[in-house]
Amino acid sequence: MSSLQGYVDRRVLLILQDGRTIVGMLAGFDQRSSVVLSNSTERIYSADEGVEEVPLGLYLVKGDMIMLVGEIDAEEDEKIDLSELRADPMVPIRY
């Protein structure tokens, strides 16, 4: 289970199976890929409004709920104006 090792103490994007996206600092994980995020915020996407950011703080997500964890490139992330971004939320996992 080496796969999440490199992400500890990095800022990550978490996509959940229901399509929600959360960004935060990866504080820890276990062998079932449950993760703890610190200073996390949910990014709520919408087709007709900019991205809404909701602070969540310290957050534990069970491994079963996770679709994907991505390392955020801080420079690239700063270039994005979330208030101008229009997009449908990520599609939830069905089958």
Partner: peptide, 17 residues
């Protein structure tokens, strides 16, 4: 259609999805 991951260069994908 999926700009959510614009700033992501590498990722971990859960096998089950």
């Amino acid at each position: 259609r999926h700009p959510h991951m614009m700033a992501v260069k590498n990722c971990f994908i859960r096998g089950s999805v």
